[in-house]
Design a protein around this nucleic acid. Structure first.
Lengths: 260, 260
DNA sequence: CGGCGGCTTGATTCGAGTCAAGAACCGTGG
DNA sequence: CCACGGTTCTTGACTCGAATCAAGCCGCCG
């Protein structure tokens, strides 16, 4: 799983890159290296001159508040660009850090190489689209997060990560997250996340194991009112709530991807 | 104030467009029209084939939840693009609507014309940058919103809007928002927004008038822990919290803009 | 074996939502 | 000019979800 560019290829294709673009882009991805769980991939304020791509494992983008606690605003899965913002709006949003949540493999694209990639209009739009997708994720979380109960928020968060992993070819139902990670991402206390998870377990939505494992994704999606269209999911992963029926469409095994 | 392209020009320049780009872009902005306060600029699911630009007034982007209540995830000020996402990721995020909060003037850029604008690399990056700025705003709200008291959240929201308006040449301290708008944007109930605002009034941060008017922006920024750098504000609008001193830097009258 | 980080559980507090009812502020029409 | 209806703003009383504080537990690793 680690070390290949499989997920990155799927990602770029789904962003609209054609075969030539893809080859060019993959060639620009250089100097892969290993990061151990818990370590920073990018120290806040660092990373001048290159863009980081996650190839394997899981990571998160976060800021720290005055009290020093971590606020996760985004999770990263293989194929994700971790700091495109540093390329487009350099030096502005300096407070952002990226941390590996599992042992991870990352590589970089030098900004010099990025400039050349952007000469290809299709690729330029693909990168723009990547940012737009990121924005769509933020939007969704914003509308979903402020209001709504902890159960909904956590369920939504889990649905989103599972869906995003499928989109890049990772189809397991297990997420390598700690409850602390989820708490920092959902803006809830660890204690309350714990209690909420136990509710999900008694509902037979999550497994009783001490890690995150969805055993009833339809129900999870229903609780979350999850509609994956904002993630550019071609179909599936969409809850349809007609009247007050417990209807769920999609989720029929693996979601094919690779629209070009 | 309405009817000119002043704000749009400032915006595009700050996004890195040069004189030629600017002229070209402005020429692509067509068919200005008027929208009355409260009306939808874009009905959710509409707006195929063109991108909407706000030229005067104020608007918001929102989704509606199952209960039908409005969730504002973004305010728009003159010069803002309201639906770039429709161009980059068409048909995906269909649930988004844009509503005028005051009487407003908007115009459109046809997608056909956009395609030609994107042939100019600098402009392509400028549009990408616009999306990135939007994402940065979402990020900030995400980290700021989940946790933190209502006072902080509302203060932050107001600071952001004032700062963004200054960036496009609108320097008043008054915001044409209703408490309902703020509630829908902050994810708080109207009742609680009201009480919070009254706190801000007794602190002499907002005026006692029945509209939003900041009379002590330093204090407002301090309460909000507002650091405008994420908005690409060149300087000013930044709270520096050294030790536990009540220090505020910047905010010294008008902020110059127009870095190219 | 001992320590440390993550998970669980209970008790208590508090911020913010909800419900409800006035009051002030329009714009409109008689 | 004033009466009317609607929308926004205010204020009060009550409820509840989630934070915090405080232990105890479990599993892992040195």
């Amino acid at each position: 799983m680690m070390g290949t560019n499989e997920s990155l290829s799927l990602k770029l294709q789904s962003l609209g890159a054609d075969a030539d673009d893809l080859e060019l882009a993959l060639k620009a991805v250089k100097r892969p290296f290993h990061v151990t769980a818990g370590a920073d991939v990018i120290r806040a304020g660092d990373s001048a001159g290159r863009t980081t791509v996650l190839l394997g494992g899981m990571a998160c983008s976060y800021k720290r508040d005055e009290a020093g606690s971590r606020r996760i605003f985004s999770f990263h899965h293989p194929g994700d660009f971790c700091d495109l913002h540093q390329f487009v709006l350099p030096e502005r949003d300096g407070a952002i850090g990226v941390q590996a949540l599992t042992d991870a493999v990352v590589a970089v694209i030098d900004h010099r190489d990025m400039d050349r990639l952007l000469d290809r209009p299709k690729l330029a739009v693909a990168f723009w689209r990547a940012t737009m997708l990121e924005a769509a994720i933020y939007r969704e979380r914003l509308t979903n997060s402020s209001r709504g109960t902890a159960l909904e928020r956590i369920a939504h968060l889990l649905c989103e990560q599972l869906a995003r992993r499928e989109a890049v070819g990772i189809s397991g139902v297990r997420l390598p997250l700690s409850q602390i990670d989820v708490a920092d991402a959902a803006g809830l206390s660890v204690v309350h996340v714990n209690r909420t998870i136990q509710t999900l377990r008694t509902l037979n939505v999550l497994s009783k194991a001490n890690h995150f494992e969805a055993i009833d994704r339809k129900q999870l999606a229903y609780i979350a009112k999850f509609d994956g269209r904002y993630l550019d999911m071609p179909r599936g992963w969409t809850v349809r709530v007609d009247k007050d029926r417990f209807q769920t469409s999609g989720c029929d095994g693996h979601v094919e991807h690779g629209r070009v």
